[in-house]
Design a binder for these strands. Sequence first.
RNA 1: GGGGGAGUGGCGCAAUUGGUUAGCGCUCCGGACUGUCGAUCCGGUGGUUGCGGGUUCGAGCCCCGUCUCUCCCGCCA
Length: 608
Amino acid sequence: MHIYRTHTCNELRPAHSGETARLSGWVFRKRDHGGILFIDLRDHYGITQIVVNPGRLFFETLSRLHLESVITVTGKVTLRDPDTVNPAMETGEVELVAETCELESVADPLPLYLAGEEEAGEEPRLKYRYLDLRRERVHRNILLRSQVISHLRRQMEALGFNEFQTPILTASSPEGARDYLVPSRVHPGKFYALPQAPQMFKQLLMVAGFDRYFQIAPCFRDEDARADRSPGEFYQLDLEMSFVTQDEIFAVVEQVLHSTFMRFSDKASDAPPWRRIPYREAMLKYGSDKPDLRIPLEMIDVTGIFRSSGFKAFAGPIASGGAVVRALPVPGIKGQPRSFFDKLVEYAKSLGAKGLAYLVWDGETVKGPIQKFLTPEEIAALAGAGGMKDGDVMFFFCDEASAAARVGGDIRCKLGRDLGLIEKDTFRFCWIVDFPMYERDSETGAIAFSHNPFSMPQGGLEALDNADPLDILAYQYDVVCNGVELSSGAIRNHSPEIMYKAFALAGYSREDVESRFGCLLNAFRYGAPPHGGIAPGVDRMVMLLAGEENIREVIAFPMNQKAQDLMMQAPAEVSEKQLRELHIKLRGEPRQSGTPPAGGAPQSTTAS
RNA sequence: GGGGGAGUGGCGCAAUUGGUUAGCGCUCCGGACUGUCGAUCCGGUGGUUGCGGGUUCGAGCCCCGUCUCUCCCGCCA
């Protein structure tokens, strides 16, 4: 007999009754009746009830054993009496009657309680992550992640993609997020950077003629966390294809993601081809470039109706500052209490709006704070534009276009949540296409790349030469699911000539481009295939599939919001010897934390 | 860098407008119990209410500072 187990804890069934079996696992729960002891023994696969009868030498030991101790139990598989069957357990028709028992690992009292429904706070959970990961929900999430990644690999290989590795120690990229830097021992004063994405490498693999690349790629960006953004590192299904159009890339992503979402979730999922929404339309209708299409509300532009109206708070900014007015019609909420509208006005102000105007269609009349400023004709025009019926309410957002979109888009989502309008159990996918190539920097007023500077501008060189830069669109696209940006990609600019021009519009000289992107530029001089790609975020995909609101729930060992690993205590100080080898001298004194977290977190060092 | 929320025994939470000795569940420790399945019952240990100052006859609660966690903005080519 195997020294640890003959079966897993989710294997024994009535058919095994009478057999002698051996199980190993963690003591999940104990029910001690003094004369008889029940132990729920848990392993990766499931739970089996162990019965310990009185008289066994190990009865007393087991009854005093702490939860989560690891034991090996050998005994007879026995059918339970019909009235003691537990239908909630997969092994609930049988139990193992212990004859011998080995203690493999005796547990100390636990800092977290695992068998209860209530969940500990994030801090203890992350500090004792190896315990937290035993809990069924997180355990299942991590397993789902493993299966999703495996499925993605098989899909990609079936589509003729080859998986590559690219360097982790590489060069700092001059555009984009803050880099994580790694000092060089051999080259004093020089640094590697961890890749923000394998962007250049995958393009160079296309230049090298490999045609179809993919990688479950680790990406490192020193940016602050969000609920759906892990600080430090995350994974992308990075892919790149040669000799392709945007449509072909879309087809690959639609097939791979759709098959993944169908396979790993019971929720409905939009069948390809997915809706394509131009960036400008998304910003107008949804106030966001990652619209949650489960919310059945859309904004409209009503700037023209207010331009010459008597409502000076809107007409003034439209005339003088180029403000716009966006309207959000919401059906059937005239019966909401006054407090509902007051709270929404306060909420709008908290978002930076000056106020929140609205009109209520109530029977034959239209009421609301701004009704008295508008003529019947103007109100009729609004009713027509928004298709207003009795009971409907129209909210107005007047500001510079991006601010109006931001506030309107936020309130659209809030109303969707608060009014319970979000479609249940559904994944709504869309492509956001035709991103602008450039935008005006809000601080400096200069023209800057709005997204990826390596994207191919629509219209090519001719557009760069002749069009207003702010009107030029890029072959740049995002995949969005339920308001979560899953992926961003582009058809790349593979022409040095177009690249010089594109960068010139953003204020880069030829010399700048050559010094910063010389490698890619040079590669493109020796025969570069037209190519493009995309990189869906694996963590976010798993988060959506697992139904989690927080990305840490699908990462085995996540860092906290301040980019600390509470379990490994990273980042940490290093020895003077290590610093000396790396030619590094710290500039500031170590900062004294007021209260180290329980267990003594590392004191952070300020190297400003 | 900025804004919101939170911080009370090991864990999760409570404590009327500022008013008695800071309560409850779980864990833990001791005891009882032969069919439970979040076992039950009895008893017990465990707290400088994150930290430092202030107001007050009196502070878990109010004020100031500070630290920590979290959500958001900035940031994320």
